[in-house]
Amino acid sequence: MGVIKFAWGLVCVIFLMGPLLVILPIAFNAGSFMVLPIEGWSLRWFTVLFTDPAWRLSIWNSLIVGVASSALATVLGTLAALGLRGHFGLPMTLTRIAFLLPMATPAVVLGVGMQLVYARIGLSSSYAGVIVGHAVLSIPLTILSVAAALASVDRTAERAAASLGAAPPKVLWLVTLPMALPGIVTGFVFAFANSLDEVVLTIFLAGPNQRTLAQQMFLQLRDNLSPAIAAAAFSFIIATVCVGVTGLWLRHRNAARSR
């Protein structure tokens, strides 16, 4: 029995992790093709990634869109989570579900709809348009993570501050927000990761000047398979691990503090 369990676990772990491990050697391939085994080790594709104008532009675009859309989603999500805090009942459930709906909507459907609207209000192929689109998709993530953080904020601390004469905005600024900060940061980080990853909506909303890194990877994967994509993917994986570790560390720190 133990052997079967072990074998099953091993097979599953290989299935889940194998694809991620395959990318690593290809990113450092000295040859020009995405095949295993690689011809030799080199950093040439990372050089391409960070010097080629098209790749560089897409990296900048991803950073601009990522930071701006995450900031927008975090501000809107935090305000809403503060407003919805402590409310129950059917209307609240419905409100929450309405705010989570963007997560369930197929990206292609939202893409078509946003393009229809953008054509009317003149946001087609603009940075603002892409940023707003990514923010719509990220808002559920920021609401969920801030709401979870607020749920664990100790109300007695706020009441103590209020009874000592702090006005509500001051309580919010000096007590509630600092205590919810790990959740807000986590929400921002998840929103950023989500924006970095987003392709489908971007295809609909971005013009050639707003092409993001993920979109550039998608187009390259479809048209020509250069190991530069693997170098970009490697950077993605490293970023993912960093984000994941940061998230776990924040949660751990938060848990340790509230203990």
């Binding site: 995405m34 990853d197 998608f218 994967l221 993917a233 993605f236 994986i237 993912t240």
Partner: peptide, 12 residues
Amino acid sequence: TSVLVRCMAWLI
């Protein structure tokens, strides 16, 4: 990990 990155891995 990005779906795109996993697509690329499966492509290889």
